[in-house]
Amino acid sequence: MNIFRLTGDLAHLIAIIILLHKIWKSRSCAGISGKSQVLFALVYTTRYLDLVTSYVSIYNTFMKFVFLATSYATIYLIYVKFKATYDHNHDTFRIEFLILPSLALALLINHYFNFLEVLWTFSIYLESVAILPQLFMVSKTGEAESITSHYLFALGSYRALYILNWIYRYATEGHYDLIAIVAGVVQTVLYCDFFYLYITKVLKGKKLQLPA
């Protein structure tokens, strides 16, 4: 474990808590893409199946349960509890165009062709594009509430910090995982446009307006 990965996990946890708190407090999921949340739940479910087969550390196990529980809780809030506030009209990204190619790629490019490893690889590829429905929704509505942009900033930062972690691990342990690195770079690049707007606008108190 290193400071980059620790702050990365913290940023990830903060993002999830910001979102849950926003939906719970405002009792509304307006502006939130339920489809991205479904993709995240699919990412954690397929990635953390190894909870039953291997043990890394109490931290690792605890965080996996937290991510699984919070992602399903968020889906419950969006599709069940506050489903009246769910914005069907703007959350229209075809997620099958993200799931199927990720699965196909995971079957073709992986470290080992066995069940858990292919699912892990699928979760890595899917996570890199899981935010697209949310970014698409923000661009369709043309704007995002500032709390939603804080959520996106924290979520985007988590994988950017993981890139620093991978550099650090390669430099100190000679350890690297190309699949995770390439997907992580793609994932972070997808946020760049948003990062620019967040830093130039939201931090100056303006509303986040994405060119529709």
């Binding site: 990965r5 996990d9 990830h12 990635r47 190894d50 087969t53 291997s54 890394v56 550390s57 690792n60 965080m63 996996k64 991510f67 470290h111 080992y112 066995n114 858990l116 490893e117 892990w120 993981y162 972690n165 995770a180």
Partner: peptide
């Protein structure tokens, strides 16, 4: 040449 990798990252 183990068939399973221990993924230690979240």
């Amino acid at each position: 040449h183990e068939e399973t990798i221990l993924h230690d990252e979240l």
